[in-house]
Design a protein around this nucleic acid. Structure first.
Lengths: 235, 235
DNA sequence: AACCCGGGCGACCATCGGACGCTGGTGCC
DNA sequence: GGCACCAGCGTCCGATGGTCGCCCGGGTT
């Protein structure tokens, strides 16, 4: 589309038809190393974040064998995360939490790349990890990074950034107890809520003030948790 | 529904020339309207002026397909803007540029209100003038504020904020020449591009650094203009 | 081999930022 | 009153942020 009304001098077109995808290796080990392990398996209620709302119906379709578009290859899904303590490599077909957190660092680098390119082209420059960044990741061979996953664990990464020691302790504790990832993930909320309380309930500010967290949206669930705790406090 | 022209809350003794609309639901922010002290008397509703028989129109355009429910009253469109010099009141069924700029200040106040409410509710808090703010405006009797209009003149307001004197001079010049609003609006781009050049082409930064501009998105057209001028420079 | 737990991530949805162009208000004659 | 001009803003659109739950990988029996 063009900007008709605004046709003014400088009709030089800002040609930005190109998809924002460059080839740039910013590979980080997408490990595969299976070591150490806690074969613990114990089921504990992950608490289900039924944060959702009403219903929705949908039908998923299995990808037909026929390749659509150029893409073609069917990427196998990533190995599930398990609770590992700091420095510990996951054993078997699992990924550890250090790897999870590294994914967030990768996204940060991907964002910087997107920002540099946007600036070069005079397009608007994202300050957060947006859809564009996930798209960029995919086009750059980082297919193992995707939005639902990254959003799912943001608050875990937040705890890691804001209080690494507490995060580490929590990991050790949950590993020891043989809790699953869901349980650990749920548990990450509470220390954050406590930090928010210490900070006048400004969870947004906690994120913004931290160099690495600044680029991540505050998860809805975390914000709501802070809000209801705050209300409870003031009663 | 009454119309525009109503009293404005004056700050101090300096009165306003602005035909502020009825019902200012917002707090009275001391926006420095910076109007030249033209000793105008505060304008009380002239009654005769803008109160024609505007409510006679009742017909709405119908979409062939369906009509959206909840039919509200048909609001007459606002009077067009004309190029006025600073402090000058538009005559006839027109609105002046001081009034235009005041609309931006009102939006700033509306945003503050939305922010306060969001915070109370623990919802995410907008930093920019978003759809939500326009919706809030409508629900608070500021039906004369709407997105297309506000976005259309953002860069004019930007010039006003960043270099009031240059903005004023441009207004005088274009008024003198008898140019229409469209021409004046186009002309506002150039001084901004020049300012961006002085600022390492960081138009985003110019906006962000200014207290009042920070809440407005940089218009695409302006960003593109800066980009192509920058490219031209470096050739 | 069979079972089933649990979590990865494809796909959906409300809403967003952004834009166009029709409608009709307005001044002029 | 009639006409021509032009700009207000209703309305559309691709893309975004956010989420849910299907599908199946993977450990256990």
């Amino acid at each position: 589309e063009s900007h008709r009304d605004d046709s003014i001098i400088l009709t030089d077109t800002v040609n930005s038809i190109l998809p924002l995808n460059f080839k740039e290796p910013l590979l980080i080990g997408q490990d595969s190393v299976h070591l150490g392990a806690c074969g613990l398996v114990s089921q504990s209620d992950p608490g289900s974040d039924s944060e959702g709302r009403k219903f929705s119906k949908k039908q998923q379709k299995r990808r037909p064998s026929m390749e659509t578009g150029e893409d073609g290859e069917d990427r196998p899904r990533e190995h599930p995360f398990i609770v590992t303590e700091p420095g510990e490599l996951a054993r078997g077909k699992k990924n550890g939490l250090d790897y999870l957190f590294d994914l967030y660092e990768q996204c940060g680098r991907l964002l910087q790349e997107v920002q540099r390119i946007s600036k070069e082209r005079g397009e608007k420059c994202p300050t957060k990890v947006t859809n564009q960044v996930f798209r960029h990741a995919k086009h750059n061979g980082c297919g193992y990074i995707n939005k639902p996953k990254m959003r799912h664990y943001v608050h875990c990464y937040a705890l890691h950034c804001l209080d690494t020691e507490q995060s580490n302790n929590l990991r050790r504790l949950y590993k020891e107890r043989g809790e699953n990832v869901g349980a650990w993930r749920q548990a990450c909320y509470h220390p954050l809520v406590a930090m928010a309380r210490e900070n006048d309930w400004d969870i947004e500010g906690l994120f913004t003030r931290n160099e690495k967290l600044r680029i991540w949206y505050v998860p809805t669930k975390l914000r709501q948790l802070c809000h209801s705790e705050k209300s409870r406090d003031s009663e």
